[in-house]
């Protein structure tokens, strides 16, 4: 599935399309060059989910944890926001406990997930963000990677 927007103001529509597309899948990987808007898009998703805390870049912290109240589950839920940009290899990702975040029941948004391709669960969503004519963005959504 592909969505094209002309400006940042249309991000809310992409968030809705993504949550619809993911159909309950909570492990979402984000791909795109520096400045493509991965963190900005994740800020919008978190806002939509009802996250109260500030959603900021986890490039240095590696993992940020946010909370929101899930209406259907009637409980507080976590969002884990990871950024593997600084990590050099798979081993470093395993050392920060990446499997815990990939295989629990909470939302997990990962930027720069390329180095852990081997460890990704089958049932996930991948989003590729491409820039065109500066303010425009194309979002390519894929899901389920069995076998």
């Amino acid at each position: 599935m592909e969505i094209t927007i002309q400006s940042i103001n249309e991000l809310e529509e992409v968030v809705k399309a993504l949550l619809n597309f993911s159909a309950g899948r909570k492990k979402i990987m984000f791909y795109g060059e520096i400045g493509a808007g991965k963190t900005t898009f994740i800020q919008n998703i978190c806002k939509h989910l009802g996250v109260k805390e500030a959603v900021v870049s986890p490039t240095f912290s590696l993992v940020n944890e946010y909370t929101y109240h899930d209406e259907s589950l009637q409980s507080e839920q976590y969002v884990h926001h990871l950024d593997l940009y600084r990590l050099k290899n798979e081993q470093e990702a395993l050392d920060i406990g990446i499997e815990d975040y990939l295989y629990d029941d909470y939302y997990c948004f990962i930027e720069w997930a390329e180095i852990i391709e081997h460890w990704l669960p089958d049932d996930l969503v991948k989003i590729y963000i491409n820039i065109f004519e500066d303010s425009g963005r194309t979002f390519t959504l894929e899901k389920n990677f069995k076998g």
């Binding site: 400045g35 900021v56 870049s57 240095f60």
Partner: peptide, 16 residues
């Protein structure tokens, strides 16, 4: 900061 830290701005610019 509401998004990136200043140190990150330096480092990511460096990458670019």
């Amino acid at each position: 900061t509401i998004d990136d830290a200043a140190g990150e701005a330096f480092d990511k610019t460096g990458k670019l």
